[in-house]
Write a protein that binds this DNA or RNA. Structure first.
Lengths: 330, 330
DNA sequence: TTGAAAGCGGTACCAT
DNA sequence: ATGGTACCGCTTTCAA
């Protein structure tokens, strides 16, 4: 038998209403009885039945978080950021891992929607159209984190366009003129589109005509990096390469090693993301590091503020983190 | 205004009771009205209010999962395994990331216990005593996954003792006689204790007296691997080393590289865990691979079966996965 | 400051 | 096959 508010009320010689008020710190009560009740609750091993509370209160403070089940190692950092702020502001996170499989996706979403949620936050999810419809119809706050989605729903992310200027400027200043971009070719991804456009424009700014062949690979995978090196062969037609995710860059690094290409002497690599993974390679990867923890925090504060419209776009800073994979050319 | 079962009942000219029966597939009803109701529910955008359902039904099908917030990359694999089976058997997972900080730990647990849960599954968590007390008093099913905890609570894990025989036998057969074990020195961890004991006994079986100095490092961290190499210097007093986790082994590998020690020529490395991380190194790490996905599946089926006692111990298989970090000595 | 009572949305028992 | 109803545990008005 589980302990309810009534049990406490009986023992304390009070009504359930009073106990409720005390335990939730709402309304008026005397501090003296309150102390007694709190102690009693503790002794008796009472835990609020949140389902009952949710049912009774109209407003919910639960935020659903959709995390792609395909391991993206930065999701942890975002969640960590959200978690901290959520605890601080009194929100709860309901984390659900979501498969890429359409059928399963719907099932997960529906079960999520069965809990009354304040909002649903999607981490780096490329959402399927029909799944999106379901969420939209459910009339619930939506927020995309780390995946910039202009005008579809509000999002918190890095400024992917200007990020490319930071990267290209850096490489240019290091003497690089032939630069490739790997893993941002997906035509259907807003992020990839922005990165390609920023890449091209940044090159033009330096009066470099970009070579379309140097933009390659549309999948966010280790294999994409390996493939890229194989495709371009040895010697490589460029001196520097930008990996659109850490895992891609590690593929580039290992591919280079396998092909007898020295990093950074024969090839410079700069990676986008800059998660812990970048510390595990030799040399350590130079990175345009995204501020994932900050994204997580902002996700919560933004939702708490509730000033959201589909074209709300919040940017977090990026940091150029020096590793050992970019050489200075003479 | 959210759609309730009553709204549907009104529109269909039925009672709430009937709609409930139909939507949950319980009790008797005619297929004809059922079809109508289901369609109506769909059209009206109805989602069951799970809180109400939970409150009404005494039994819950929600399983809480405690995941350490410190990035352990195998947690994902376990969760994936749980997720699949859970969906299949009609359970829901409530995932909560838990900090190592005592204060926050309690807060998380309490909020978890506020949802009526069928069980709490702990992934690789070294739980603090007082936190454990809270869980124990809450009178809820407990299960530890991947962290073998003999006689404290039921657990699903690899057989850490016999695993060491597999590893040592393999190294012995490859000609190694001087073997070190890194990252299993924590005296308070059952897993570490079992690994050390298994290591020692496996060596004895081959008539090798173990050298206590060769057991080093108690933290599950990249740095532990780096430190180990530094500590033993060059040339190393052993020909092979066992890393007690992938991240440690990567530290060993990079530490060796930094010190000019060639792997596997000068040093053989075998790692315990065998997650995706092991594919990212050069050479690829040879691993005693744990079956994390299976652990996840078993966690759910075991809970579904409910035949649990504190001394229930379920083992999953381990696989020796050949990489390029173990050399054959002559 | 405290209590009585209605109600949140479903479920399940007992009638019909 | 369907409907009426009590109830799950908590919150919240309103009255005392």
């Amino acid at each position: 038998m589980t302990i309810t508010i009534k049990d406490i009320a009986n023992r304390a010689g009070l009504s359930a209403a009073s106990v409720s008020r005390i335990l939730t710190n709402r309304g008026r009560f005397s501090e003296k009885t309150a102390q007694h009740v709190r102690q009693l609750a503790d002794e008796m091993g009472y835990y609020k039945n949140q389902s009952a509370a949710d049912l009774s209160q109209k407003e919910s403070r639960v935020i659903g978080v959709l995390v792609p089940i395909t391991h993206t190692n930065f999701a942890d950092e975002i969640i960590k950021g959200m978690q901290g702020k959520a605890t601080e502001l009194g929100y709860e996170l309901l984390i659900a891992f979501i498969a890429s499989d359409n059928q399963q996706q719907l099932k997960t979403i529906k079960s999520l929607l069965s809990r009354q949620l304040l909002a649903v936050v999607m981490l780096a999810i490329e959402i399927k159209d029909n799944t999106f419809k379901v969420l939209e119809n459910a009339d619930i706050l939506l927020l995309s984190v780390s995946n910039q989605l202009n005008n579809v729903m509000p999002s918190i992310s890095s400024d992917n366009y200007s990020m490319m200027f930071t990267i290209v400027d850096y490489l240019y200043q290091k003497g690089h003129r032939q630069i490739a971009l790997i893993g941002a070719s997906d035509q259907h991804s807003t992020v990839a589109n922005l990165r390609r456009q920023g890449f091209i424009d940044a090159l033009l700014k330096h009066k470099i005509n970009y070579n379309p062949d140097f933009i390659y690979g549309d999948e966010n995978a280790y294999q994409t990096g390996l493939n890229a090196i194989q495709k371009f062969g040895k010697p490589l037609p460029f001196t520097a390469v930008i990996g659109s995710a850490d895992i891609i860059s590690i593929g580039l690094l290992n591919g280079a090693k396998d092909a007898g290409i020295k990093v950074p002497d024969d090839l410079s690599i700069i990676t986008i993301d800059g998660t812990e993974l970048t510390e595990l390679t030799r040399p350590i990867l130079t990175a345009a590091q995204q501020n994932f923890a900050k994204m997580g925090e902002l996700a919560i504060t933004t939702l708490a503020g509730q000033k959201l419209s589909p074209d709300t776009v919040v940017f977090t800073n990026i940091t150029l983190k020096q590793g050992g994979t970019v050489a200075q050319l003479d």
